[in-house]
């Protein structure tokens, strides 16, 4: 499966993600958000990100988002009532709009973040270092990311193991199920500590943090395309803000 995708430096990808997320966070307008959402999906595809896989791996997060959306639409009541009980408006047009806005904002951030996943962790670290972020902090972030899948397989085994003990998680009442989760906590934490310690010892025994500086075998270079992407993102982001705040476009909030 070889699709067309742009080869870009991690720093220009970071610029794109930063630009889109800033717009999504500060401008709470349904039209602007829909526009940015479409643009960020297009950008993610252009950079070769696998959006479907990203949705799958963040599946549980999305359930949470939907619950927040429903709560938001219930608690912020304004405009025409869509669902009312005894004349008391429960779900309103304004509430649904608020919920929808929240969902779009989160989607913009998640989808644009998938752009970063098209670079490997060493490139991300090097990008951060060349942006003058201390290398030990940058490395710690990347090791933490590496750590998650390592932990995931162990958590999976633990979940399986406790069920094999004869506990059918689906059949246990909620109150007792919480007790079961507390038991699962134990091996998971112990495993995490053991692995984290192993990783940090291995790094230190290879002279990590021997000096304040370190050389890098990998060198990132910005190409003409990268400069174009960064300048374009800057202009685009500023333009959206200027249009919105000074020219009041798109006008009016419902």
């Amino acid at each position: 499966m070889s699709k067309f995708s742009i080869e870009a430096d991690i720093r220009s990808k970071l610029a794109v993600v930063l630009g889109f997320s800033t717009i999504a966070v500060f401008i709470q307008h349904i039209y602007v958000l829909s526009f940015i959402l479409i643009i960020s999906i297009a950008a993610a595809l252009l950079f070769g990100a696998n959006i479907l896989k990203a949705i799958k791996t963040t599946r549980n997060l999305w359930y949470l988002f939907f619950i927040i959306v429903i709560l938001q639409s219930i608690f912020s009541r304004s405009g025409q009532a869509l669902l009312a009980i005894n004349g008391f408006p429960l779900i309103t047009a304004g509430g649904v709009l608020k919920g929808g806005e929240f969902l779009m904002r989160v989607s913009v951030i998640v989808f644009s973040a998938t752009i970063i996943s098209t670079s490997n962790s060493r490139e991300v670290v090097q990008g951060l270092v060349q942006l003058k972020i201390p290398y030990d902090i940058a490395f710690m972030v990347s090791v933490a990311i590496r750590f998650l899948p390592l932990l995931r397989s162990e958590i999976k085994d633990t979940f399986t193991a406790i069920q094999l003990r004869g506990l059918d998680l689906k059949k246990i009442p909620l109150k007792r199920r919480i007790r079961v989760y507390l038991y699962i906590f134990n091996p998971v934490v112990a495993g995490a500590i053991r692995k984290a310690r192993g990783l940090s010892i291995a790094m230190e025994m290879r002279a990590f943090r021997a000096y304040r500086k370190r050389t890098s075998f990998l060198k990132l270079r910005l190409s003409a395309a990268d400069y174009f992407i960064m300048v374009f993102t800057l202009i685009f982001t500023s333009a959206v803000f200027v249009m919105f705040y000074y020219f009041n476009f798109p006008a009016g909030i419902i």
Binding site: D157, A161, Q163, R165, L167, D168, K170, Y183, P187, G191
Partner: peptide, 24 residues
């Protein structure tokens, strides 16, 4: 069959026994 049901017929020792020790 549920995992609980299988567990009552076949016992499984994981490569790393620490994943199946739950209590203090």
């Amino acid at each position: 069959m549920s995992l609980g049901k299988v567990g009552s017929k076949i016992g499984y020792l994981f490569q790393n026994p620490e994943v199946q020790i739950f209590a203090n």
